[in-house]
C-alpha cells in the first residue's frame, strides 16, 4: 500500500493522491478531530484545513513514515493548535452539540439498555480532560500501541503510560463508583 503512495508521488499527481488519501482516511480523521473538539461543524472545518495542509506538504512526505502516521501527526497538531488558540479558549459555543438521537429507531427498552452499556462509556470518555481522552481514544478506539501513540503525538512513552493508567482510574471512578 505504501508503495502505491510513493509511486503516485513520483508521478506528481498530487490531486489524484489527495483524493485517495481522503477516500482512505477521511472518516477516521474526522472522528479523530471530533474526539478533540467535540463539535461537528468545527471538526469538519478543521478536517478541511488538515487535508489542505496535507496537500501543501505532500512533497515533504519522505515515504519513510507510513502515510497514515504522517497524516495523523498533522491532524493531531492541528487540533491542539486549535484548542490552544484564542478562539477556542474564549468563544463558548452557544449551540451545544445535540446528542445523537437514539430513540429514533429503537424501542424505549433497547434505548435504556444501550444507554447503560454503550453511551455511558462513550460519554465518560468524551468528558475526560483532553490529555486523558487523547490517550484512551488512540489506545482503545484506534488500537494504536503506546509506541505508535508516541510517534503521532510527540509525547514520551512513559508519560503516555502514566496518563493511560490515570485515565482508566478516572473512568473507573466515574462508571463504577
Amino acid at each position: 500500500m505504501e508503495e502505491f503512495f510513493t509511486e503516485v508521488i513520483e508521478t506528481d499527481d498530487k490531486d489524484l493522491l489527495i483524493g485517495e488519501i481522503m477516500h482512505r482516511h477521511g472518516q477516521e480523521i474526522l472522528q479523530l478531530v471530533y474526539s478533540y473538539v467535540k463539535n461537528r461543524s468545527i471538526a469538519e472545518d478543521l478536517t478541511q484545513d488538515i487535508f489542505v495542509k496535507c496537500y501543501k506538504s505532500l512533497h515533504t512526505y519522505s515515504g519513510k513514515a507510513r502515510i497514515r502516521t504522517w497524516l495523523w501527526r498533522i491532524a493531531i497538531n492541528h487540533c491542539k493548535d486549535y484548542l490552544k488558540s484564542w478562539y477556542a479558549r474564549n468563544v463558548i459555543l452557544t449551540e451545544k452539540e445535540t446528542e445523537p438521537a437514539y430513540h429514533q429507531d429503537k424501542t424505549v427498552e433497547q434505548t435504556v439498555i444501550q444507554k447503560g452499556e454503550d453511551q455511558e462509556l462513550a460519554e465518560a470518555v468524551m468528558e475526560l480532560p483532553i490529555k486523558y481522552r487523547e490517550v484512551i481514544y488512540l489506545f482503545y478506539f484506534e488500537e494504536l500501541s503506546i509506541k505508535e501513540i508516541s510517534e503521532v503525538t510527540d509525547i514520551k512513552e512513559n508519560t503516555l503510560k502514566t496518563r493511560l493508567r490515570r485515565a482508566k482510574d478516572l473512568l473507573k471512578e466515574r462508571l463504577e463508583g
Binding site: D118, A122, I136, F141
Partner: peptide
Amino acid sequence: LKKLRKSMKETTFRNVNF
C-alpha cells in the same frame, strides 16, 4: 474499554460522517 470502538461508533460518531 475493549468495547469502546463499538460504543463510540454507535453513539459519539453516529452523526459524524465524512
